[in-house]
Design a protein around this nucleic acid. Structure first.
Length: 468
RNA sequence: GGCUGGGUGGCAGAGUGGUCAUGCUGCAGACUGCAACUUUGUUUACGCCGGUUCGAUUCCGACCCCAGCCUCCA
């Protein structure tokens, strides 16, 4: 079984062939930390989290790096607004980000490097680019000289002429070419800065990723990920820098870009202000529900984010848990203790198959529901255990079904579970005497407290009624 | 204007040259004391117009819409 991935640069899906099959290297762009991250940031992180899980299932070693941009004018501005030290703001936002991402079931990357921890490497790269005449110093700045890179534009299929026509940006007078971008810029005393051959200053946005990739993964990597809105100019510029530095513009084997989340008909973005933070969504919804919602669309497509989507995701996810819950009794009954099949340690093909095909998560979820159906129809404990195991294995690739099944249904009950048990027993007694009015009254009473009852062959169970 | 990617059944969202996506919702049946859970069935689905083909939602061409990028953005 091959993994196939869509590569932005080649605009085609192709088989994934790592540089070193014994060690896959992947880098994804993380956000700039100056505020609570929004669910669109979460989408990107979830997508590459799933990709890494799939890669880990297929290759012996995977190193996953996701950076944090902790030096940026937006951080400086926000810190000034809030009147807090810049480092404090960045650190607080970083902590919050890790908390939010964890709630979405995103596993920590192997390294989460920060731009400010790589200033030396950044200076080394800039110096080299200047020596190679791909960059020049002007007016306290260091700029990348775009015309010096014949491959500029090849990632996003742009011609230099087009870029000039579409240029909406004011051209700084010290630029040799309007397309040139900043590698290093001077800092006033009130701004964070580091000493450099070009005076005290701070790095431009794009160079940090070049430096962090080189530091943590080396001259060549397998996959570079990020949002599609980063493809240009961020990744194009990064490719120009690293490509010229390493004299190899194919230092990234596969460029992968996730689609945007739409709120209403427009892209969710901080500059438009139409964002929902993960933090606020978590007030009303389980992180796992949000994750399911994200995975319900293909990563390269844009996804309409609204209450309807979250509601449907909640119900869909519940049906998966329901299958697990329904099968619990059957699984625990001792039956043919068939030393479980050879497939015991394998991931279900219904789930990993689609995921290996350019991360087709909607189909993988369909596979999960297929397994759930078969589990619901299972009649032997052996089959039930096998299917349950498969579901959990599939879930471990998607980062779903990670909660305790019983807790999924019973947590946040407004009544004491002991009281609920007592009422259920009372109702059972009434039922036994065919006092159905009394039995129904108890059920209605529980329901009015948000507790729904289910009679099964193996007794009565209850659950909290979700989302009103 | 240029460059990407889209328009699928009530909703979300995959996919395929001729056979079921899947989930949610609605309706009907089974199960149940009644419910719930589960399960079965279910509503001319593939933007528009041509072309290729025995056959196209799927391939080709034109057209109409939508979103993203071309400035910071996941």
């Amino acid at each position: 079984m091959d993994i196939n991935l869509y590569d932005t640069k080649r605009r085609a899906k192709r088989p994934f062939e790592p540089i070193d099959p014994n060690h896959v290297k992947i880098y994804a762009c993380g956000p700039t930390v100056y505020d609570r991250v929004h669910i669109g940031n979460g989408l990107s992180a979830v997508v590459f989290d799933v990709l890494v899980r799939v890669l880990r299932a297929c290759f012996p070693k995977v190193t996953y790096i996701r950076n944090i941009t902790d030096i940026d004018d937006k951080i400086n501005n926000r810190a000034r607004e809030l009147n807090v030290p810049i480092q404090t703001l960045a650190q607080e936002c970083t902590d919050a980000l890790q908390e939010d991402y964890a709630a979405l079931g995103i596993l920590p990357p192997d390294v989460e490097p920060k731009a400010t921890e790589h200033i030396d490497e950044i200076i080394v790269m800039i110096s080299s680019l200047i020596r190679q005449e791909h960059a020049y110093e002007a007016d306290g700045h260091v700029l990348f000289y775009v015309p010096s890179d014949p491959e500029y534009g090849s990632l996003t299929n742009k011609s230099l002429d087009e870029l000039l026509d579409g240029a909406r940006v004011e051209v700084a007078p010290y630029k040799k070419d309007p397309k040139d971008f900043v590698l290093w810029k001077p800092s006033t005393p009130d701004l964070p800065g580091w000493d450099s051959p070009w005076g005290r200053g701070r790095p431009g946005w794009h160079i940090e990723c070049s430096a962090m990739i080189r530091t943590h993964l080396g001259a060549e990597i397998d996959i570079h990920g990020g949002g599609t809105d980063l493809a240009f100019p961020h990744h194009e510029n990064e490719m120009a820098q690293s490509g010229c530095f390493h004299k190899n513009h194919d230092y990234v084997r596969y460029w992968m870009h996730n689609g945007m989340l739409n709120l209403g008909s427009a892209k969710m973005s901080k500059s438009l202000g139409n964002i929902q933070t993960i933090h606020e969504l978590l007030q009303d919804h389980a992180g796992e529900t949000l994750r399911y919602a994200i995975l319900s669309g293909h990563y390269r497509q844009s996804l309409r984010w609204d209450d309807e989507l979250i509601d449907q995701s909640e119900r869909s996810l519940t049906s998966l848990y329901q299958a697990l819950r329904n099968s619990e009794k059957l699984c625990t009954t001792d039956g043919e203790d068939v030393s479980t099949n050879a497939s015991h340690n394998q991931f279900p093909s219904e789930v990993i198959g689609p995921l290996m095909d350019d991360l087709n998560t909607p189909r993988a979820l369909a596979g999960m529901h297929e397994l759930a159906l078969r589990l619901n129809l299972a009649t032997t404990s052996g089959a039930a255990r096998e299917l349950r195991d498969q579901m959990l294995k599939g879930g471990s690739l998607l980062g779903l079904l990670t909660r305790d099944v019983d807790a999924f249904f019973t947590q946040d009950a407004t009544l004491d579970p002991e009281d609920i048990r007592r009422l259920i027993a009372e109702r059972a007694a009434a039922k036994a005497k065919k006092h159905y009015d009394h039995a129904d009254a108890i059920r209605a009473d529980l329901l009015s407290n948000g507790i729904a009852i289910e009679d099964t062959r193996d007794g009565t169970i209850w659950k909290v009624v979700k989302s009103q």
